[in-house]
Design a protein around this nucleic acid. Sequence first.
DNA 1: TCTAAAACTGAAAACCGCTTTCACAATTTC
DNA 2: GAAATTGTGAAAGCGGTTTTCAGTTTTAGA
Lengths: 140, 140
Amino acid sequence: MHALSPTGHRLPKNYRLVNDVVHEHGHGRHLAMADIHALAKRSQPTIGFTTVYRALNRLSRLGLIAEVRVPGADMTYYETPADPHAHFHCESCGRIDDLDYHLPSGDVERIAGSYGIDVREALVTISGRCPACREAAPAT
Amino acid sequence: MHALSPTGHRLPKNYRLVNDVVHEHGHGRHLAMADIHALAKRSQPTIGFTTVYRALNRLSRLGLIAEVRVPGADMTYYETPADPHAHFHCESCGRIDDLDYHLPSGDVERIAGSYGIDVREALVTISGRCPACREAAPAT
DNA sequence: TCTAAAACTGAAAACCGCTTTCACAATTTC
DNA sequence: GAAATTGTGAAAGCGGTTTTCAGTTTTAGA
């Protein structure tokens, strides 16, 4: 017996579990597939990472969760969908934070127009050192 | 006998070869390690990819070449260092183009200040479909 | 110039996240 | 119910990157 997602899609129950996990633990945090798998196992100890992998793909495609890809990070992270925002990636400790920033409206459209591009997504990523790492080892 | 790089660093000759390759073929193009290895072999058929790998790391660290990491692309690309600019990544054909755009000056500083971040780099990446792919398969 | 230390080299193996395959189980549809 | 579809977990495969190893070349210092 499958059930419907919040947007009316039919979702297997493992997929709904994954969705719940991301929404419960993804408040401002960014979860890797391994994290999500570990969390899902708490409710469903037999769930395999392959299922989590497929769930994340499906949920992303449906827009129920969002992929976070940060240049320089070697993994894909997942978060709850939110208004456009930038990401910060600490090169020392690897942490990823949300930044409340988005490109000036109009800029993307202007670029798209002049290059003939069909834009799906415009990403802003800032990399550097977070306050904690700054303090731990000031300047390298 | 080593020689000096343009900036006065001592560089093994294989590393200089890699540097030359990137600067000769990286005009507006983005080269993967495999490309660079293949090109370097023309002059130095015995050069191994490990050496190219190490050269690219060193040269990047010295700022003689620039790494291009694009979210969604599975590889690191290399280009000649240039003024800040954005990148476009075509999700259909994978091509990566330079875009003549940079974040409004002041924006990055403002973010850095309010979050206490030590910024090394601010990246703008736009993904979507390039004109060629648009035409080949309009809308999916 | 000779020599010990340091740096460089290429092949191969290890690594690591992601993706696919396989054989089987559960669910849905008719 | 039975057939077709969809979901499942383990395991194997894949591809770019990184490390290891044993050996060579280069450098620095007497």
